[in-house]
Amino acid sequence: MTKIRKKYDRTFKERAVELSKDRKNISELARELGLSAAQLYKWRKESEDFGSGSFPGNGNIKQTPEQERISALEKKLKDSELELEILKKAIGIFSKNDQ
């Protein structure tokens, strides 16, 4: 038997997190929304950790702005290293032809 996984859109998750901040009984709210309390706590933690970057959907990685900047800089570095290797090989090829 396969278990069907429910998917919730970003607005639903954000609204559920906001409602959970106003309520004292999280378990009761979770039942009203058709969720498990653990799921609601997970969404609250994600919202606290990533703020507006929470719930990106489609398997995207959640990153803080610093992590995004680091990822972008690492990509630039990798591209630059690749270009340098290509240039080194080209110099080697051209220097052999000159001899």
Rank of each mutant, 00 (worst) to 15 (best):
Q39A: 14
E85N: 10
L40M: 07
G51S: 01
L29V: 07
S71T: 15
R23T: 15
E32G: 00
A72Y: 08
W43K: 02
K89R: 05
R31D: 13
K45G: 04
I93M: 08
E68I: 12
D49E: 12
N58Y: 13
Y41L: 08
D22A: 14
A30R: 05
I26M: 10
G57I: 04
D22Y: 09
L40K: 03
L77R: 14
L77Y: 11
L35A: 09
L35W: 01
E81W: 00
G34T: 05
R69L: 08
L40S: 03
E85A: 12
E28L: 13
G34F: 01
G59L: 05
L73Q: 07
A38Q: 13
L84I: 05
S47E: 03
K24W: 13
A90M: 09
D79Y: 00
K75Y: 05
L77M: 15
S20A: 15
G34I: 00
E46S: 08
R44L: 04
Q63A: 14
E68K: 15
Q39V: 00
G53H: 14
F50H: 07
P56H: 07
K45D: 06
E66C: 07
D79P: 00
A72D: 12
L82S: 10
K24R: 15
S36R: 08
L29C: 02
K78L: 13
E68Y: 03
R44E: 06
S20M: 13
S47Q: 05
E85P: 04
K75C: 07
K76L: 15
F50A: 06
S47I: 01
L82M: 01
K42N: 13
R44G: 00
K21W: 10
I26S: 11
W43L: 04
A90H: 11
F50D: 06
L73V: 04
E46F: 02
N25E: 13
L35M: 04
R69Y: 00
K62H: 02
L73H: 01
D79C: 05
I61A: 14
S80C: 09
E28H: 09
K21A: 13
I26E: 11
S20I: 04
F50N: 01
E48D: 11
K42T: 12
E46Q: 14
L87T: 02
I93V: 10
Q63L: 15
L73I: 10
G51W: 03
E81N: 09
R31L: 03
I26Y: 06
E66F: 10
A30T: 06
F55M: 06
G59T: 10
R23W: 07
G59F: 03
G51A: 02
F50E: 11
N25Q: 15
K62D: 08
A30V: 09
N60Q: 15
R31Y: 06
Y41P: 00
G57N: 04
S27E: 12
G59P: 08
N25D: 15
S27I: 03
S52Y: 07
L33C: 03
R31I: 04
D79H: 06
K78N: 12
L77T: 11
Q67L: 08
K21P: 05
K24A: 14
E83N: 06
S54R: 07
G53Q: 13
L87I: 08
E81R: 05
L29N: 11
K88V: 01
G92A: 02
E48W: 10
L33H: 01
I86K: 15
K24H: 14
G59N: 11
R69W: 01
